Simulated assay, not measured.
Amino acid sequence: MIQALFDYQREIYLSVAQHLKSFAADGSWLALFMVLPMGVVFGAAHALTPGHSKTLLAAYITGSQVKLSRGLLVSLALSLTHIALAVLIAVLALPVVSIALGSAGRAPALEALSRGLLGLVGAWMIWRALRGRRQHHAHEGEAVGVMAGLIPCPLTLFVMTFAIARGVPWAGIVFAMAMMAGVAITLGIVVGLAVLFRSGSAIILERFGSNTARISTLLEIGTGMILIGAAVRQFLVA
Rank of each mutant, 00 (worst) to 15 (best):
residue 141 G to T: 02
residue 130 L to P: 03
residue 141 G to Q: 13
residue 151 I to P: 05
residue 16 V to I: 01
residue 77 A to K: 04
residue 99 I to N: 13
residue 97 V to H: 11
residue 19 H to W: 06
residue 80 L to R: 07
residue 75 S to E: 01
residue 121 V to R: 00
residue 100 A to T: 02
residue 95 P to F: 14
residue 20 L to R: 03
residue 148 A to R: 00
residue 63 G to A: 08
residue 115 R to N: 12
residue 94 L to W: 15
residue 116 G to V: 00
residue 119 G to C: 09
residue 137 H to V: 14
residue 69 S to R: 11
residue 103 S to E: 14
residue 147 M to V: 04
residue 135 Q to T: 15
residue 41 V to N: 05
residue 106 R to T: 06
residue 12 I to N: 09
residue 82 H to G: 06
residue 83 I to G: 07
residue 41 V to W: 08
residue 34 M to K: 15
residue 106 R to V: 03
residue 30 L to P: 00
residue 130 L to N: 02
residue 93 A to C: 07
residue 90 A to P: 08
residue 27 G to P: 04
residue 141 G to E: 09
residue 88 L to N: 02
residue 117 L to N: 00
residue 138 A to C: 09
residue 88 L to H: 05
residue 118 L to Q: 12
residue 22 S to N: 12
residue 54 K to L: 05
residue 126 I to D: 15
residue 26 D to M: 01
residue 42 F to Y: 10
residue 93 A to E: 15
residue 85 L to C: 05
residue 24 A to Q: 03
residue 101 L to H: 11
residue 131 R to A: 10
residue 38 M to W: 13
residue 65 Q to K: 03
residue 64 S to K: 03
residue 71 G to Y: 06
residue 92 L to M: 15
residue 130 L to D: 05
residue 82 H to T: 11
residue 148 A to C: 11
residue 73 L to D: 10
residue 87 V to G: 02
residue 128 R to P: 14
residue 142 E to V: 14
residue 32 L to M: 11
residue 126 I to G: 13
residue 12 I to E: 10
residue 73 L to A: 14
residue 121 V to D: 05
residue 85 L to K: 04
residue 26 D to P: 06
residue 81 T to H: 06
residue 39 G to A: 07
residue 148 A to I: 04
residue 136 H to M: 09
residue 10 R to F: 12
residue 138 A to F: 14
residue 137 H to Q: 13
residue 142 E to P: 06
residue 57 L to K: 04
residue 73 L to C: 08
residue 34 M to I: 12
residue 34 M to G: 14
residue 112 A to Q: 10
residue 83 I to N: 06
residue 61 I to M: 05
residue 48 L to Q: 00
residue 89 I to K: 08
residue 136 H to I: 12
residue 88 L to V: 14
residue 80 L to F: 07
residue 50 P to N: 06
residue 134 R to F: 11
residue 14 L to P: 15
residue 137 H to I: 11
residue 17 A to L: 02
residue 101 L to T: 08
residue 108 P to F: 01
residue 28 S to I: 01
residue 135 Q to M: 09
residue 129 A to I: 04
residue 48 L to G: 04
residue 38 M to A: 07
